[in-house]
């Protein structure tokens, strides 16, 4: 379980608070979207979880342990695929394991296994430039899984893709989530994406962030796109858009 406990944060050298006493929890195995307008501090949550920034007050805990003493507790997937162009697909996927010091034979085996599961095994020896945008994101996802931790932080991973590829990848991601059974925190500013993917949506509407509004998505898995047309879901969508718009106008 992941818990933010009364977390305060201001970027070094700045005066404007980003987080002010924020608390929330995420249970193991959940798929949660963090929804908020651009520039609202969503990515900051991930930077704190990643250890790229340090909180000034409160604590962030995983299974009751403060993350400051932990290693390899989360895997981060950035918005851009950030594949290294000098590495093949396979070598890119193996990078986190290489850094963690996993021996070569195991790296190779795990990577092959992972590429099979994300349906990209025939591209193992190709370079990122030989792949389409959607495929590159899938490689990036495989690399994230290879970082080995149970908690996946996905930071708007599909926002740069065209709409059809995005829809395909959303459906693909849900299949992967069911297969891999990991906890997913998914940042997005796209209301429909948040509803389609997640069990719960944490909505950020204020700055500094003092709390998140938690909304359950009343849809079972496996999901199909036509579920989005149910009146209840349409209403939810309108409510969310309304909440976000208020924040933008404020």
């Amino acid at each position: 379980m992941l818990a933010f406990n009364h977390v305060d944060f201001t970027y070094p050298g700045e005066t404007e608070k980003i987080l002010d006493g924020l608390s929330f929890q995420v249970q193991d195995g959940e798929f949660i979207s963090i929804l908020g307008a651009s520039g609202g501090g969503k990515s900051t949550l991930f930077r704190l979880l990643n250890g790229l920034e340090t909180i000034q007050g409160g604590s962030i805990e995983i299974d009751g342990k403060n993350i400051q003493g932990l290693k390899h507790y989360c895997s981060y997937m950035p918005q851009k695929d950030l594949l290294f162009p000098w590495r093949t697909v396979e070598q890119n996927v193996m990078l986190p394991m290489e850094v963690a010091g996993v021996d070569k034979a195991k790296r190779k085996k795990d990577c092959g296994h992972m590429l099979r599961r994300v349906e990209l095994e025939e591209y193992a020896k190709k370079y990122p430039r030989d792949l389409s945008g959607g495929m590159r994101q899938r490689v990036s996802f495989a690399r994230t899984l290879c970082a080995g931790s149970n908690l996946l932080l996905l930071d708007e991973p599909f926002s740069a893709l065209d709409s059809i590829t995005r829809i395909n990848l959303q459906e693909w991601l849900l299949r992967q989530w069911v297969k891999f059974n990991r906890t997913v925190l998914f940042i997005t500013h796209d209301v429909e994406e948040a509803i389609f993917l997640s069990q719960k949506i944490y909505v950020i509407t204020e700055k500094p962030i003092r709390s998140v509004e938690q909304i359950e998505v009343p849809l079972p898995y496996p999901r199909t796109r036509d579920m989005l047309l149910q009146p209840e879901i349409m209403r939810l969508k309108e409510e969310l858009i309304h909440a976000l718009r208020q924040k933008v106008e404020a």
């Binding site: 990643n50 950035p78 950030l82 990078l95 986190p96 850094v99």
Partner: peptide
């Protein structure tokens, strides 16, 4: 060297030396 790539390496737990050889050199 792209900052995002460097940070990605950091999230994998890479130190300065690893980042240098695996990212900066190429």
């Amino acid at each position: 060297t792209k900052r995002e790539m460097q940070e990605l390496m950091q999230t994998y737990g890479a130190g300065r030396l690893r980042i240098f050889f695996k990212l900066k050199v190429p």
